[in-house]
């Protein structure tokens, strides 16, 4: 009973917020360019029509592209760092330093280097995804139960066998935790890059709507960015559930 109530509660809160929002915009006569009502946003969506999906998918592909590029690069570096300690010592501080550079500051630079196409958006998304995935995969590959390492040693496993059958699967729960964070970051990266220079995408449309003081459209695109992030987040959760079910069961055990 309690469990069902816990699940319904957030939906109930959302209904209250939307209801309160409608009441506030109606009764306090707030102009739509300051705070549009949900009806204004729906009307704006109707006006935009199917063109919306083009922008949605542009940002979607930029985010996914950045996520994969950043993820693959981070995992590659993690594998290198795990096996060559001196490379980790030499390069990890720079990877950490890279994290401190604000993405908004890099976006215009990437436009100069790579033009106004899809590439700088993917690169910016990749940069923002890189760090959390690198740190998590490093942790997952390193923090292996010493008894498991001993087990592999007692069976005479080679370094490669220990990596493929122990370190890599051991890092998967850590990796998926970072994927959940990184995939949301990837959308932020793509949107920020679109702010710098673009001719399509949700970020570009937010900028365009702001120039025209078209607040209902801005709300529509901002909500779409959030929904896109949520969609990708749950996609990662679903893939984790399918591919790493034992991680889910372990987590449930811990929660119990």
């Amino acid at each position: 009973m309690n469990n069902h109530f816990d699940k319904i509660l957030p939906v109930f809160i959302l209904v209250i917020i939307i209801f309160g929002w409608i009441i506030a915009t109606k009764f306090f006569s707030i102009p739509s360019y300051i705070l549009p009502s949900p009806f204004d946003i729906i009307e704006s969506a109707n006006k935009i029509g199917s063109g919306f999906w083009r922008d949605f998918f542009v940002t979607f592909f930029e985010s996914i592209g950045g996520f994969f590029l950043g993820g693959i690069t981070a995992i590659f570096f993690a594998i290198i760092f795990v096996h060559y300690k001196f490379l980790e010592i030499s390069f990890l501080p720079y990877a950490i330093a890279m994290k401190t550079i604000p993405v908004v500051a890099i976006a215009p630079l990437l436009v100069i280097w790579f033009g106004a196409g899809i590439l700088p958006k993917i690169i910016l998304s990749a940069l923002i995804c890189f760090f959390p995935i690198l740190i998590s995969s490093l942790k997952g590959m390193k923090e292996v139960d010493p008894e498991r390492v001993d087990l592999f040693k007692s069976f005479g496993a080679s370094t490669f066998q220990t990596f493929i059958w122990l370190r890599l699967p051991n890092s998967l729960p850590y990796l998926f935790t970072s994927f959940r964070i990184a995939v949301v970051f990837a959308v932020i990266g793509a949107v920020v890059a679109e702010f710098a220079s673009a001719n399509s995408g949700l970020g570009f449309k937010i900028m365009l709507a702001s120039f025209h003081v078209d607040t209902p459209s801005m709300f529509l695109y901002i909500i779409s960015v959030s929904l896109l992030s949520m969609l990708l987040y749950f996609l990662v959760v679903f893939i984790e559930y399918v591919t790493v079910p034992w991680s889910f069961s372990l987590r449930n055990l811990i929660n119990d």
Partner: peptide, 22 residues
């Protein structure tokens, strides 16, 4: 003392591990 099994493998695949390694 603590069974050192790999949670990402089922019972059969856990037992197969030393044979795979060899």
């Amino acid at each position: 003392q603590k069974p050192v099994l790999l949670p990402w493998r089922n019972v059969y695949d856990n037992i197969l591990l030393p044979v795979q390694i060899a």
